[in-house]
Design a protein around this nucleic acid. Structure first.
Length: 477
RNA sequence: GUCCCCAUCGUCUAGCGGUUAGGACACCGCCCUUUCACGGCGGUAACCGGGGUUCAAGUCCCCGUGGGGACGCCA
């Protein structure tokens, strides 16, 4: 059997983290078995579906690298097909017109709730033969309901949750077509999953309750039931379901915050699934090792600190070229233009010098500014702390020695720094910090010889000259 | 309220009848160190409660409790 999975979001918002995880699971399952992954946009609710959301979902999928073999398929393009199936169900006697008004239904539900019952349609029109009309003789508005079996159990053999048994008495006759004739969710999923020959339906467990209804419809249509896998929800830090209020931001926010798509995927994968003690998985390993059956049945809490840690692992180990690719967006975003050339270091070298000091691409981009752009002023706290009365003399001494360096490299720079320390009988602790502030404008950087090497001789000397001036002026009066 | 799902360190998890209950994040020490980091070493920390079943239960069963979900002419 060919494995065919799908991700079927409704375009009523961005692609959020929970959706991204079920998409990932679906995608992995298809890739693992050499099958197809289909993207279907469930936009039958025309009121709430927007093009903007469609774009956001596509952008998110693309950023995460979850490529699909078919789609995006829009349900609104398939209304004829749904009408056909609805007609078939009516003809078979498995669906019927219901003339109950919204008010009647509301009242029914209210009464049931008051009686501590589960609110559900009472089947009033189920066996109705007449066609009620208004005062002008026109038929009343009606919806189409599916005739759900009255007795018996529906058994879901869920790949994640195990066997779930629901009695048909818990179900009611759901609406499959609205007054305006448009089909509803439960009907469209069934038709689409069948038509698209989906073998494995992997989705959030908030759909478990819909599953028995869908199985009943599939059975009524005489088709085979696909395998189901219901993945648990992701909860926010407060233990509540992740919602917009609780930080359920769109996946693109994670790009903006400086995460690698691969890190987000890795984090999402490990949230609710594990393989021995492994934490970091390459794309290939994910595909190779993932098994839906091993997905944890319990909901899990999203933890940003762990995501950051995962991201750090990627920033530490990814090839500089690849980091540079992802970094570019942030450089642009932060208005920093990289000009590699005679007086400027290669971006890859800078990345290698800084990769252990940044948790996110945002930090990385911000931390490398001084290699490519002169600073106007010194970090206030840094200057205050490290520019002392003795500083001008120290910096001048360094400056004199640096000028003599013919081959500007880390070894030679380190040697001259040491010479200055020896000559002035000062420890590195007295010389280093001032030098660092002088050439970077900040109190943090990689080790000095590397930093100076990257900044280059020309600009290192210029900055030192400026710093001598600044520090001298500071203690002039 | 009714139905469904779930339950091991604060968090993510391993465990599938007999373990000193393992790993990771976070946190706390120590070490390394010119800064910021990285790294190394060590530590604190968990089987929701009660009944069973069994020689033996974190592991199986039942009942509670707690959390989540569903109950739309939303998906």
């Amino acid at each position: 059997m060919t494995v065919r999975t799908r991700f079927a979001p409704s375009p009523t918002g961005y692609l959020h983290i929970g959706g991204a995880r079920t998409a990932l699971y679906s995608w992995l399952h298809a890739r693992k078995h050499g099958g197809q992954f289909i993207l279907r946009i469930e936009d039958t609710d025309r009121e709430r579906s927007t093009q903007e959301s469609v774009d956001a979902i596509l952008e998110g999928m693309n950023w995460l690298g979850l490529d699909y073999d078919e789609g995006p398929i829009f349900q609104t393009d398939r209304f004829d097909r749904y009408a056909e199936v609805i007609e078939q169900l009516i003809e078979q006697g498995d669906a019927y017109k219901c003339y109950c008004t919204r008010d009647e239904l509301d009242e029914m539900r209210e009464t049931q709730r008051a009686n501590k019952e589960k609110p559900r349609y009472n089947g009033k029109c189920r066996d109705r033969k007449d066609i009620p009309t208004d005062e002008n003789g026109n038929p009343l508005d009606s919806v189409i309901r599916f005739k759900n079996p009255l007795e018996g159990d529906v058994v879901i053999d869920d790949m994640i949750k195990g066997e779930i048994i629901i009695n048909n008495r818990e179900l009611d006759d759901l609406i499959i077509a609205r007054t305006d004739g448009t089909p509803t969710y439960n009907l469209t999923v069934v038709v689409d999953d069948l038509d698209m020959e989906i073998s494995h339906v992997i989705r959030g467990d908030d759909h478990i309750n819909n599953t028995p209804r869908q199985i009943n419809m599939i059975t009524a249509l005489g088709k085979d039931v696909p395998k189901f896998a219901h993945a648990p929800m992701i909860l926010g830090d407060d233990g509540k379901r992740l919602s917009k209020r609780h930080g359920a931001v769109g996946v693109m926010q994670y790009r903006d915050d400086g995460y690698f798509p691969q890190a987000v995927l890795n984090y999402l994968l490990r949230l609710g699934w594990s393989h021995e003690d492994q934490e970091i998985f390459s794309r290939e390993e994910m595909i190779d090792l993932f098994k839906v059956e091993n997905v944890n049945g319990a909901a899990s809490t999203f933890n940003t600190k762990k995501l950051i840690w995962v991201n750090e692992q990627y920033i530490k180990t990814l090839p500089a070229d690849e980091i540079a690719q992802h970094l570019q967006w942030h450089l642009d975003n932060q208005g920093l233009t990289i000009v590699e050339g005679d007086d400027y270091p290669a971006l890859n070298d800078v990345i290698d010098a800084h990769r252990d000091r940044a948790k996110t691409l945002v930090e990385l981009a911000a931390g490398i500014r001084y290699y490519y752009q002169d600073f106007e002023s010194y970090d206030e706290n840094a200057a205050k702390k490290h520019f002392k009365t003795a500083t001008p003399a120290i910096l001048q001494n360094l400056l004199d020695k640096f000028r003599q360096i013919e081959a500007w490299n880390a070894d030679n720079i380190a040697a001259e720094i040491k010479n200055t320390c020896d000559e002035l009988a000062l420890g590195m602790g007295k010389v280093g910090p001032a030098l660092r502030v002088a050439v970077t404008g900040t109190a943090m950087s990689p080790s000095l010889e590397i930093t100076l090497d990257l900044i280059g001789k020309k600009r290192s000397l210029e900055r030192l000259e400026k710093a001598v001036e600044f520090a001298t002026a500071k203690y002039a009066d």
